[in-house]
């Protein structure tokens, strides 16, 4: 059982506050650190990894301070987001070096490479690897010493769907084994597929914490806005407003479109095509007008 505790921690860079009075506890299992780009996820992970001192507050691993404490790395494995990784080495040489730095031998490196299924390319130079292969070798380097904590910064960035699934499967396994796995992402679906527990940060603040279903509901239950164009806007508007899933409709005559505010996301998306078909109306455009991640998150912060 290894727990990372972030206690009233802030971190600023000059005048910019990257992390603002955040407290959270990350325990065994897979935790997703979710937030838009620039929310402070990397800053948080860097403080948990001991690469950055908190400006105020404490970041500890099982009660021991992480900053300036090399001993914590016996328990922590880190998969950084940055790509720099001794490209002139082969995958095997790289992982063996990482094992040696932990006082382990080549056999540990071999096991880690097998875990990430990279044995087939281990004798090629890292410079020749694809993004997904690099990511897996980074994983292997983080796993050589069988750490109880695994920290991953945006691990799925730039991976193709198959690599993404493999990595998710691996992280799920690590979590199920009782390791404390924390990964950051700005993509809700990624986090939802993998993490049982979610921490949301927005603009440096801790916006939400808990089970992903609850957070997902918070996110999907907010009012949604849609821009809809059809063969008969007024008839469609009349039919839709009769249903409680729709809170308001504006007919935008200059744009030739309906601006619809839906309160029940699931019900509205099922209703719209049904209503259109029943009234013989053709839908030309259906586009969510405030689906940007930032607006989703800012709604969450306000909630």
């Amino acid at each position: 059982m290894t727990t990372i505790e972030i206690d009233h921690t802030s971190r600023w860079f000059g005048n910019v506050v990257a992390v603002n009075d955040v407290s959270m506890t990350v325990g065994p299992g897979v935790t997703g650190l979710l937030g838009p780009n620039g929310a402070g996820k990397s800053t948080l992970i860097n403080m948990m990894a001991g690469f950055l001192a908190p400006s105020t507050g404490k970041v500890t691993l099982d009660g021991k301070q992480i900053w300036r404490n090399e001993a914590v790395y016996r328990a922590i494995g880190i998969v950084p987001e940055r790509e720099g990784m001794y490209d002139f080495l082969t995958g095997r040489e790289f992982v063996v070096a990482n094992a040696e730095l932990h006082g382990l031998d080549a056999a540990a490196a071999g096991r880690a490479l097998a875990t990430v299924e990279m044995e087939y390319a281990q004798d090629r130079k890292i410079a020749t690897y694809s993004k997904g292969m690099r990511q897996r070798v980074k994983m292997a380097s983080a796993l050589v010493h069988d750490p109880s904590v695994l920290l991953l910064d945006e691990p799925f960035n730039g991976m193709d769907p198959r690599q993404r699934m493999q990595l998710m499967e691996l992280l799920r396994r690590m979590g199920a084994e009782g390791r404390t796995v924390l990964f950051s992402s700005h993509i809700l679906e990624e986090v939802e597929q993998l993490a049982s527990h979610i921490e949301v940060v927005v603009a440096g603040r801790h916006a939400a914490s808990g089970d992903f279903r609850r957070i997902r509901r918070l996110m999907t239950d907010r009012p949604h806005r849609y821009t809809v164009r059809s063969s008969d806007d007024r008839a469609l508007a009349a039919a839709l407003i009769a249903d409680p899933s729709t809170a308001g409709i504006e007919v935008d005559t200059t744009e030739g479109a309906l601006l619809i505010q839906a309160v029940d996301f699931g019900r509205f998306t099922a209703l719209l095509p049904q209503v259109a078909r029943a009234h013989g109306i053709r839908l030309l455009t259906v586009s969510p007008s405030d689906e940007s991640l930032e607006s989703v998150f800012s709604y969450l912060v306000a909630a």
Partner: peptide
């Protein structure tokens, strides 16, 4: 160069005295 490209992480994230 290791500090520039970030690969120093792999040395720093080890129980090796700085």
């Amino acid at each position: 160069p290791e500090i520039d490209d970030g690969s120093i992480v792999y040395l720093l994230a080890k129980p090796v005295k700085r």
